[in-house]
Design a protein around this nucleic acid. Structure first.
Lengths: 150, 150
DNA sequence: ATAATTTAGGAGAATAAACTCTTTAAACCA
DNA sequence: TGGTTTAAAGAGTTTATTCTCCTAAATTAT
């Protein structure tokens, strides 16, 4: 699999946040229910995004999490890096120790090309853009198969 | 990770076979030692390739495995499919249940493009081609970091 | 025949990933 | 102050992957 489940959950939750019109905090429990992700697990995942500065959290009643920056400025790449790291974009596809530019493995170059495609996709896609498309076309995000946020 | 470890091991072993000048069987134990992969584990993995018809095996002294077809005709795609299946090329990147053409998720289209890059890489790379490049340039394949086969 | 070599097959251990539960800390409200 | 709501932190459980080991079956050599 390209992305870990934790990473996918993180993306979906971030997308959910970007799609919300409301600016305030929303609780992770609520999000978990909407997205059909265990709230406890989601808490763990979003903690990483908070540590990385992508989200900010607030405790107590009416607390929760929200995006620190506008959805236009946040790419999926940032979320992937925060959760899965950047091994997807740096590591050799055959995982040979020490494979690099000096002494590459036989598919190093071809894989580098394919990887660039992935990088472009991740870097070239903002949360807002995805959220807008999702809302306009009523695409699939939440557990019920729709894009209803509120 | 894009490919499972088992899959990477399968590719490296197949590449090893394609790079050999000798036509006969070679034991999995020998290959495992050269490639620094547990022979028992490698046996399990290569069984899948044998079941899939990519390899043929022979028991007894001087037995082992060999490619059924010429290395020119075998692409990495076939090995990946035999070991990891084709979920990498069919499943949605966000893994949403039921995501498809009719009701895609918001990154469905972009991911489809990136995925095509991966598919082209896997389908467009033959074992022989990799083996030749590996030998010519003495690239990295075996545990010692070289491409010495015999 | 008997022993040696090798793949096949399956059970099991070790590790990692995914997920759950409990406790703690912060913030709010009555 | 005391209770409620929420994220944070960490321990524990389950599941999947990776890897090891043992036995069986096939083939060869003596």
């Amino acid at each position: 699999m390209l992305l870990s489940k934790a990473c996918v959950y993180g993306i979906r939750a971030s997308l959910f946040l970007a799609a919300r019109d409301a600016k305030g905090y929303i609780s992770i429990r609520q999000m978990g229910e909407k997205l059909d992700i265990s709230p406890h697990f989601l808490t763990k995942i979003l903690q990483q995004l908070t540590e990385d500065g992508l989200l900010e959290s607030y405790k107590g009643p009416n607390g929760g999490v929200r995006l620190t920056r506008s959805g236009e400025e946040i790419t999926i790449m940032e979320i992937v890096k925060a959760i899965d790291g950047d091994k997807l974009l740096t590591e050799c596809a055959l995982g040979l120790p020490g494979c690099g530019v000096q002494k590459p493995c036989p598919i190093h170059e071809k894989w580098a090309d394919a990887r660039e495609g992935i990088r472009k996709m991740l870097e070239g896609t903002t949360l807002k853009e995805m959220a807008k498309k999702g809302k306009d076309l009523d695409l699939r995000l939440t557990a019920d198969g729709g894009f209803d946020i509120d």
